[in-house]
């Protein structure tokens, strides 16, 4: 990535979701991210694209990896980064979401990265803030940078996304990662499958252009990519599935089930993993796993997103 890259073909002011992005938009971000990967592998990782800019990480929901990934991305581009997490903010003192946002808005940030437990919360803020807004996950709705980093990881390992069969397995119902990935992968021409027990599949999911499987063995057959999702602990004991033991038996990814996918199939997980619940340690740490590479691509993709949005910031 050069200091002043060619004009980035990305016309959006915010990144609120994959929905609304065109294949051109997505490829522009992925291409930009390739450059960021190179930058991140050098000794001197610092760029000046966001010099003088203020980036606020506003996390209403705890997250170590996404927040640190955005923080590093911002710093590598030269921005001043401030992290605000709910535990240290006045949200707990009864201040509303809007009040918090308007207070931060008055501090004139250039980009705010928001994570919130409720779907649509980031849209709500984007309508009220003057700066660029990046959705770092809103409820069960979208997590666009996760889908972008997954796409980048796939593209670097498989050369392309179009034509691949990607199986997304697990708690689709509560997963923003699944929704963003379904939209992005379908947009770039992959065949997307979702696999899970009926209690964890959102109603009407088949109308989102995916093939639905309730049996993991059938669903994994011929898959190029196996994307596992995290199952939250409180959903394991009777609410949605009877127990973590039973879940692992039927929907946990172990070597035996993975053998049903293509021999060169690759395994992904957005993290953090529940080893022994949705994924066996041998698979997670095995030769087919891309899980650590995903983390590296996370920083690169977020650098690309910040850079793409920065070109539309006022006075630039």
């Amino acid at each position: 990535m050069s200091e002043l890259p060619q004009k980035i073909r990305f016309s959006h002011r915010h990144l609120l979701g994959i929905e609304g992005l065109s294949p051109l938009d997505i490829n522009a971000l992925l291409d930009l991210a390739e450059g960021a990967v190179e930058v991140s592998r050098q000794v001197e990782k610092r760029r000046t694209t966001l010099r003088g800019r203020t980036l606020i990480n506003l996390f209403f929901e705890a997250s170590t990896r996404t927040q640190s990934s955005f923080e590093l991305a911002g710093k590598r581009l030269g921005a001043d980064v401030m992290n605000m997490s709910v535990a240290t903010s006045s949200v707990k003192k009864g201040e509303t979401l809007i009040d918090t946002a308007m207070t931060l808005n008055a501090m004139r940030p250039d980009i705010i990265v928001v994570r919130h437990a409720q779907a649509g919360a980031v849209h709500l803020l984007a309508n009220m803030l003057d700066c660029a807004v990046v959705n770092a996950g809103d409820g069960a709705h979208e997590h666009p940078t996760q889908a972008l980093l997954d796409a980048l990881t796939i593209r670097r390992n498989k050369g392309t996304i179009s034509g691949l069969t990607v199986a997304i397995c697990g708690d689709i119902l509560h997963s923003r990662v699944a929704r963003s990935n379904i939209l992005l992968l379908a947009c770039l021409g992959a065949r997307v499958r979702v696999i899970g027990p009926s209690t964890l599949l959102p109603p009407g999911i088949e109308r989102m252009g995916v093939e639905v499987f309730r049996d993991m063995r059938t669903g994994l057959k011929g898959a190029d990519i196996v994307m596992m999702l995290r199952l939250q602990r409180e959903r394991m004991s009777g609410g949605f599935v009877p127990s973590s033991k039973e879940y692992f038996r039927f929907f946990g990814l172990d070597q035996e089930k993975l053998a049903l996918a293509k021999p060169d199939a690759l395994v992904m997980h957005p993290g953090p993993m529940n080893r022994g619940v949705e994924i066996d340690s041998a698979v997670a740490d095995g030769a087919q796993s891309l899980i650590r590479e995903q983390v590296e691509m996370g920083v690169a993709v977020r650098m690309a997103v910040l850079e793409a949005l920065a070109q539309h910031l006022p006075n630039s």
């Binding site: 779907a119 929704r179 009407g204 109308r207």
Partner: peptide
């Protein structure tokens, strides 16, 4: 479908 798309 619409609720599923909105994540609600």
């Amino acid at each position: 479908e619409f609720a599923s798309r909105l994540g609600l």
